[in-house]
Design a protein around this nucleic acid. Structure first.
Length: 526
RNA sequence: GGCCCCAUCGUCUAGAGGCCUAGGACAUCGGAUUUUCAGUCCGAGUACAGGGGUUCGAAUCCCCUUGGGGUCACCA
């Protein structure tokens, strides 16, 4: 658009080390990554750690982890290096200092000796007169000698950009179109603090230019910053990058930014409650905390619960972007091939857990059986480790379980919902008490019928699903009862549960001995 | 409050003047199948925020209103 086609595309994602990867931030990162890959360009990871936290290294790990899990590799950045490093803002002060000097020398910036108190008073004065506040610029009237003297005395000062008030600044945003601001309404932004450190808005511009970023793809909340940044690029003589402000993700059922700050509200929102509850059910079994340590705004939540990268990627891609009027299931290569900035939707997109589930189900379904087995095995083994037990899990048997469960298995950790299938012979079942009452106590004929069926099961040959199906149906006919009078009782007797996979398949899977002994045990309980 | 952005079914979206009595997906509700749940198959309902223009013709272009959101630091 503004760049010659020969310039290779370079995009960047610049997270702060917060200690977790936000799902919305991941979506922004994905869009950056996609645009780079679509153009066979370069995707850069740069760490915005200007506030110098102590444990940057630790706080960074979940971010790297999320990228790696989803398979979004970075071409330049931490751990991989690159020709434009260092990739930590905290290590790039010399570049910012040079840029400040350059702006000071060219007259685009000036030293401001006004105290924060003066500035605050100016602001208040403007406000009380219902006037727009702009910097008063008293320091501009200082003689060079006065300035030098104050500087020599160590009087604190900041460096501000001298905003050209007589004009407008405009940007042709790749998703929002032409946007412009009146510079006469803008205060002069601080570039360098009195302690010599630099502001994000300035550092970003210096970095983007030095790293030769061609497309700045970021969340909409930065749109207002763009006026200052565009001015800075201009003052620095940089070739202007293309800006693309993508809409942010909103919390389900709201139009506010999906934020970790509103966690309490999110937890109680009907759409998200299930996800929190699921975390509390599953995570403790695996020794990975609970919903207070991992929640649905974090990428790690999905990883730990056993979602598929393909499912998450598909869902994230479709939040604010579409291929056409009907394609929903998109493998990454297809997205890369077709991803363009002009198809990004302008309006904010609500995060919809239900739809995410449906993408996930689609990709789980498409997964080869072997990979499903591997995934489930990991979870079963992890659970055993945590519980301190070591019952060996037969891979072939697990394969039969996974095949039988079919679409009931949406994420890998769902396998933990079926402990009764993996229990050894002598381990007692946990019964769904309500169902037990209804099907085996209230239904007074049930124990008798069950006893008869057990005796038939003890000898029937072969012990496979079709045979068992026929056996039970013949039994129903012979007894003159309804099928519902026996199947529910039978299922509870054998699994303890009211619902599950196909009954006859389940019986066949568990095997004759286990079925008979469990029915006997259940009968003893009636 | 100033500035800026946004506005199609409950939700994600298609739609770049006639193909739109607005298409798809998720969710919802029916029906069928099944021993239950899930699934599957079939079917249903539901949307262009409002008002003015421009035009032979507007969801699509312009203006206004309304509503929502973002941002206004020596934060990132």
């Amino acid at each position: 658009m503004f760049l010659p086609m020969t310039v290779p595309v370079r995009t960047r994602f610049a997270p702060s080390p917060t200690g977790y990867m936000h799902i919305g931030g991941m979506r922004t990162a994905l869009f950056c990554w996609l645009w780079a890959r679509h153009n066979r360009g370069t995707f850069i990871l740069r760490i915005d750690d200007t506030d110098q936290q102590r444990h940057v290294e630790e706080a960074l790990q979940p971010i790297f982890r999320a990228f790696r899990w989803l398979g979004l590799n970075w071409d330049e950045g931490p751990e991989v290096g690159g020709p434009f490093g260092p990739y930590f803002q905290s290590q790039r002060s010399h570049l910012y200092r040079d840029a400040v000097e350059k702006l000071l020398a060219s007259g685009h910036a000036y030293r401001d000796f006004d105290t924060p108190e003066q500035i605050a008073a100016d602001r208040q004065a403007a406000e009380s007169q219902k006037q727009n506040y702009v910097t008063v610029r008293r320091s501009l009237d200082l003689t060079p000698a006065q300035q030098a003297e104050w500087t020599a005395q160590g009087k604190p000062s900041v460096v501000r950009l001298l905003v050209p008030r007589d004009r407008k600044i405009a940007v042709d945003d790749a998703v929002r179109g032409h946007v412009e601001w009146d510079c006469g309404l803008m205060p002069d932004p601080v570039l360098m603090r009195s302690d010599g450190s630099f502001l994000y808005n300035f550092a970003t511009v210096v970095d983007d230019a030095q790293m030769q970023i061609t497309h700045i793809i970021r969340a909409e909340e930065h749109l207002t910053n763009t006026a200052v940044q565009a001015l800075l690029h201009e003052a620095l003589g940089n070739p202007p990058p293309v800006f693309a402000h993508i809409p942010f993700i909103t919390a389900p059922g709201s139009n506010k930014k999906l934020s970790k700050r509103d966690l309490l509200k999110l937890r109680n929102s009907p759409a998200l409650k299930k996800m929190f509850d699921r975390a509390d059910e599953i995570l403790p079994q695996l020794g990975w905390g609970d919903s207070s340590t991992l929640n649905p705004v974090m990428v790690e939540y999905y990883e730990r619960l056993g979602y598929l990268p393909a499912g998450i990627l598909n869902a994230l891609s479709r939040l604010g972007w579409s291929l056409d009027d009907k394609t929903e299931h998109l493998p990454l290569p297809t997205v890369i091939e077709n991803f363009t900035l002009d198809r990004i939707v302008k309006a904010p997109a609500g995060f919809d857990p239900e739809k995410l589930q449906s993408y996930q189900a689609n990709w789980m379904n498409a997964l080869p059986l072997d990979e499903k087995i591997d995934g489930c095995l990991t979870y079963l083994q992890r659970k055993q480790e945590v519980a301190g037990t070591t019952t060996p899990i037969d891979r072939e048997f697990l394969g039969r379980v996974v095949a039988m469960l079919g679409e009931r298995l949406r994420v890998f950790s769902d396998i933990l919902d079926y402990p009764e299938l993996f229990l050894s012979t002598d381990a007692p079942l946990v019964y769904d008490e309500k169902a037990f009452q209804q099907r085996l106590v209230t239904a007074t004929e049930a124990p008798g019928l069950l006893t008869n069926v057990r005796d038939l099961l003890a000898t029937v040959e072969p012990f496979d699903a079709p045979t068992l199906d026929k056996l039970v149906h013949d039994f129903v006919t012979a007894e003159g009862i309804k099928i519902g009078q026996i199947v529910h009782a039978l299922r509870i007797a054998v699994t303890g549960k009211a619902v599950g996979a196909g009954l006859f398949e389940t019986l066949a899977l568990l095997g004759r001995d286990l079925c008979v002994s469990r029915i006997t045990a259940t009968l003893a309980r009636c």
